[in-house]
Design a protein around this nucleic acid. Structure first.
Lengths: 346, 346
DNA sequence: TGTTAGCACTCAATGACATAGAGTGCTAAC
DNA sequence: GTTAGCACTCTATGTCATTGAGTGCTAACA
């Protein structure tokens, strides 16, 4: 692949991303000033097509990049496009404005992602299954009512009102809390073993009833929050893309958007890798819609991967821009979460 | 409006709701067996059109109901269509399965609404601005960290970790909690007056720092939760309606769906009234999309209106069905919330 | 007087057909 | 190796005729 071929491919990718129209040789010669005539470019294009980097929608139309073409572009030709001052400023401002709990951070992240990229944003909520108990407390509330609170080391908080016998005193609750803390601190919900539970029940035999409810809370939290939740933002943006100016495609797209489970799997898929992953068209498997690409990256807190964020757009996507945004946002998100978890404000 | 005219109008409304095609005189005569010939029906239709109940999309097409026609239908002709056994069963089952906190109830309600009606469901979350403090507690967590918990009388719980000086003892926290409870119990967040705050600060002068943070939590909760949140479900359903088989309309519709603020206002609008409200086409004001109707109803807990639920569909909507569903669901929702708030399980 | 059959008329939807224009591939000249 | 020229391809667009559902009106009928 010589230098000029690369330039031609780059021109085609750029122009197609820009206009969504097949690119002709004349356009390239005129707009991208490679210093050669359309005829020469036509020769190069014929070669590029032969090698599978571009294709013709039909005989005698311009060329569009193939998936392989996009891949080559992303791997070798693309140059990172830093965020503008205004964009960085926007992110900073929005995050500082209102981020009190994890839910809000996730929400805000999704909003920003879709706003900055104009595509659909997907944010996976942090997994609690792998977060550890930091503190457990049973609090007396009023006449025969108490509340169980479990604070996890990722900052998540589970709570539930429970009914307790009137005979239970604050002191009892204190005792129960102490035992639970001693046994569970540092463990993940998933790793609570049966033997451990037996130990606890043995030690607190008198309060079996309360323990039942506490365990139930843990059980529910686990099963509820283990099934990843996803935040979607800017689905609407996709409709402005010309490739979705057709009702059937919109329907397929939206029906996929409603299958949260599927999206979670797709997002989580990139977890193994470090940094930003770009998947182009068919590289996203189990996928019944074509012409989409996905750019994802995991975010982590204190070195542990907690979830992923991603952007879904047409294959004709502004890769350079989106890769930068996703990269920047994971870092910002990790940072923010970390700060939150360490007490958030001094 | 004589009996036969009503029958003709009814036939037109039903058939149009069913097929989304303009209804001709022949169709009515054949399908709805009024015992008269198409020519007679044509005469009646001419009258109905003159009175503004139906209209012709163009000369020599069939007729479709006008907004006035739908209104007449809803007010006088429509017969309530009870839910089927299966539907009631479905609702019962789904609610019992997983409803632990208010968020889940709202979510589930939205899902059910859209599933049962095949239109777009909207559920307004309960307003905490008008809920009252039931119990406030500051809990020691660990070395210089504590948690503020506020339980509201509608079952909502606000919490936040706060940093406290190491000198603070559990006893201090107990004292603070007691004072806060004494002063605030039974009040809404909105109605905390400045004089009251001064009183509290005076009484707990030593703990100014902690109070600052507690007040901040209240402030944030108020401003955050006062701005109504809305749950949308089944937006995708609308795309199956033939009136939205055109990209421009889909775009308008979805862009409206993204303006949560607007939707909240619309939903909240029906709050004043008791029971189910039907708004047809232009009766929904501040609305730039035509051809939509909205069926809403407020739900209440312990006699106080807490929010609304609603269904948005095309004007060509199955009014009878949707009205029943919305009615049934508000009642079920109110009931469920009430049960939850009273401790939820015995 | 209300109902019905008959008929001419209207108009959207459909499909056939011609035309324009963008872009190509190939050839031959530079 | 590059370029101008040219014939060719194929979509998009517009025109026109045809079809058929449905109407309104008139006149006949009970």
């Amino acid at each position: 692949m010589d230098d000029r071929k690369q330039k031609v491919l780059l021109a085609i990718v750029h122009d197609y991303i820009d206009t969504a129209e097949p690119v002709g040789s004349r356009t390239i010669a005129k707009k991208y000033r490679l210093g050669v005539s359309p005829a020469t470019i036509r020769n190069e294009m014929a070669d590029l097509e032969e090698q599978g980097f571009i294709e013709q929608p039909y005989t005698s139309a311009g060329r569009i990049p193939s998936e392989r073409g996009y891949r080559y572009y992303v791997d070798y030709l693309m140059r990172k496009q830093e965020l503008s001052r205004e964009e960085e400023e926007l992110i900073r401002r929005e995050y500082e404005a209102k981020v009190r709990d994890i839910g809000q951070v996730i929400h805000k992240t999704g909003q920003l992602l879709s706003k900055l990229t104009h595509y659909t944003a997907m944010v996976l909520t942090p997994r609690v299954g792998i977060s550890r108990f930091k503190h457990i407390q049973i609090v007396f509330m009023q006449q025969s009512q108490a509340m169980v609170i479990a604070v996890m080391d990722n900052g998540a908080v589970q709570h539930r009102m429970i009914e307790v016998p009137e005979s239970i005193t604050s002191l009892d609750m204190e005792t129960i809390s102490r035992v639970l803390n001693a046994k569970l601190q540092g463990l993940t919900m998933r790793s609570i073993k049966l033997t451990l539970i037996k130990e606890i029940y043995l030690e607190l035999a008198r309060h079996e009833h309360i323990l039942d409810m506490v365990m139930e809370l843990f059980q529910d939290s686990l099963s509820l929050e283990t099934e990843d939740k996803i935040y979607l933002g800017g689905v609407f943006n996709m409709l402005n893309q010309p490739e979705f100016h057709n009702v059937e495609k919109i329907k397929t797209l939206l029906s996929i958007m409603e299958q949260e489970k599927l999206l979670c799997d797709l997002l989580a898929g990139g977890d193994r890798t470090e940094g930003v992953t770009v998947r182009i068209g068919g590289e996203i498997d189990q996928w019944d819609i074509k012409e989409c690409s996905m750019i994802t990256a995991p975010y982590s807190v204190c070195g542990r991967k907690m979830g992923s964020i991603g952007v879904l757009g047409p294959t004709r996507m502004e890769y350079a821009k989106v890769v930068s945004v996703v990269d920047y946002m994971t870092k910002y998100l990790s940072q923010t979460l970390e700060r939150m978890i360490r007490g958030w404000r001094k």
